[in-house]
Design a binder for these strands. Structure first.
Length: 163
DNA sequence: GCCAACGTTGGC
DNA sequence: GCCAACGTTGGC
């Protein structure tokens, strides 16, 4: 019996860290640091497993949308940037002995042949229910259903299914 | 750059 | 525990 994997959408501002930046990392792998929202953290802590797949979403840019796919390669562990006073993610209330914030490691898989913009998602009757389409949605990590995952891939021109 | 939506903080 | 003030997110 195959293990069920979960699907995710993770936002990043391309000016700060784009999908190309991830692909340029050694082993195409990096840690996903700087999550400072409890709900997003809890998703990582409770539901994110090694082998899960995630959409890389570019936010706060000319054309926000889903641009590629990455894989979760390490489950949640303490986000060290919270302990670094020089980091913009520094949080004096995160105790190294009881870390408040977590991160995961992600590995670049591929870019979508055609990015699926937020406008495109919103225009689709199935995908417009995605959390990322909701007005005022600020969650930077959110679950994606299998149906949503496949529908996005269909729109991306890739044609392939998720499995 | 604007601003609506939202989460967090802290006084009470 | 309420809620106003504040800071941040992120589309536009």
């Amino acid at each position: 019996m195959t293990k069920t994997i979960n699907y995710w959408l993770m936002k990043s501002e391309p000016d700060a860290f784009s999908i190309d930046d991830l692909a340029a990392q050694p082993n195409k792998t990096d840690h996903w640091d700087g999550i400072r929202n409890y709900q997003a953290r809890n998703f990582m802590r409770d539901d994110m497993n090694k082998g899960d797949l995630a959409f890389f979403y570019h936010s706060n840019c000319d054309e926000p949308g889903i641009v590629g796919i990455m894989e979760i390669v390490r489950t949640a562990y303490p986000d060290h940037t919270a302990f670094d006073p020089d980091s913009k993610y520094f949080d004096p209330k995160s105790d190294p002995d009881n870390p408040r914030w977590l991160m995961v490691d992600v590995r670049y898989r591929r870019k979508l042949r055609r990015p699926v913009s937020l406008a495109t998602l919103k225009a689709d009757p199935v995908l417009s229910t995605m959390r990322v389409c909701q007005k005022g949605s600020r969650l930077s990590i959110m679950p994606v259903s299998v149906d949503e995952w496949d529908a996005v891939l269909d729109m991306s021109g890739t044609g392939g299914r998720s499995k």
